[in-house]
Amino acid sequence: MEHVFLEILAEEAQKGNKPSNTFKTVSIKRVVEAISERFQVQCDAKHVENHLRTVKNQWQIICKIRGESGFGWDDNMKMITCVRATYDAAAMVIYVYIC
């Protein structure tokens, strides 16, 4: 479902249906129709808009982590990479922060 969502929005952005930081209503409707039809689920514009906010938040986190020293990006697997020591140090910082 996520792949269809992102694929359609990427196409809509290329068409110019994303004039600023949000998509035009026609783009959101296209996603709603495609997901509803392909996956036989009840989908509406609010679902798409909420998921778009989630994706944007996740992407901001990914960009922040990628900008930190010791982290990289595997473009084939579309994931953040690092050595174990870097991961352990980052996990410890997060653990101390939340505790």
Score class of each variant (00 low, 15 high):
M1W: 09
M1F: 09
E2P: 01
H3T: 10
L6T: 07
L6P: 01
I8M: 08
A10T: 05
E12N: 07
Q14A: 15
G16C: 03
G16Y: 09
N17T: 02
P19V: 07
P19L: 08
S20I: 06
N21W: 04
N21G: 15
T22H: 14
F23R: 01
V26Q: 12
V26P: 04
I28T: 08
I28F: 09
R30A: 07
R30V: 00
V31I: 05
V32Y: 07
E33S: 11
I35Y: 02
I35C: 12
S36W: 05
E37L: 15
R38K: 15
Q40N: 14
Q40E: 10
V41N: 11
V41T: 11
V48Q: 08
E49G: 06
L52K: 09
L52T: 00
T54M: 11
V55A: 01
V55P: 00
K56A: 12
N57H: 11
Q58E: 14
Q58N: 14
Q60W: 04
Q60H: 12
I61K: 09
C63N: 12
K64E: 14
I65Q: 03
R66N: 10
G67H: 01
G67P: 04
S69T: 08
S69Q: 11
G70C: 05
F71I: 01
G72Q: 05
W73E: 00
W73M: 05
N76P: 00
M77F: 12
I80P: 03
T86A: 06
Y87T: 00
D88G: 02
A89G: 06
A90W: 07
I94T: 06
I94C: 09
I94Q: 10
